[in-house]
Structures are given as structure tokens and as C-alpha cells.
Amino acid sequence: MSSRRSRSSRHSSGARISDDQITDLVNKLQQLLPELRNNRSSDKVSPARVLQDTCNYIRNLHQEVDDLSERLSGLLETTDTTQAALIRNLLMQ
């Protein structure tokens, strides 16, 4: 009996964390997703939906990075370094 209890307590403090903490993490993730962020009744969104939307959102962001990299590589070829330095200064302000 005592050995079982100690095992379960080790679980909750170590590798396993409580359902409440998982729910909390899922809610935090949900707040970052544009499509689900403004959902007032947060408990109506299933964890499966949050996970699915998280995946889609990350894919979209990866795609945006791809597109912007393409755009930047094109722009850099037509811009000389003095202009790049100027922009650097502008951005650092």
C-alpha cells in the first residue's frame, strides 16, 4: 500500500503532471491561435481541436517564413550593402 502511494506521488511530481495543469497548458496554447483566441467559452473547444489548430498554425508560420525568405533573397540581390547598413541603423533605433 505504502509503496503504491509513493509511486503515484512520484508520478505526479515528476513525469506525470495533473489534468488541471494540462488543461491550463492547452488553454494557453489556445490563446495563441488566431482562430480560437476570441472564443469566449473556452471550455467548448476540445483539446483535439486545439492540437489540430496548433499544427495548422505552425505549418502556416513555416510557410510564411519560406515565402519571406524567398522575397528577401530576391530583394538582397538588388540592394547593395550600404542600403542594408542604412536599414540596419533604422531598425536598431
Binding site: 530583394l75 542604412l86 533604422l90
Partner: peptide, 11 residues
């Protein structure tokens, strides 16, 4: 990245 691209294209 978008800010930099916008700045570069406006130069």
C-alpha cells in the same frame, strides 16, 4: 522578416 522585406522594398 516582413518588416525587413518591407523596408528593403521601399528603399
Amino acid at each position: 522578416m516582413r518588416n525587413i522585406a518591407d523596408l528593403l522594398s521601399s528603399v
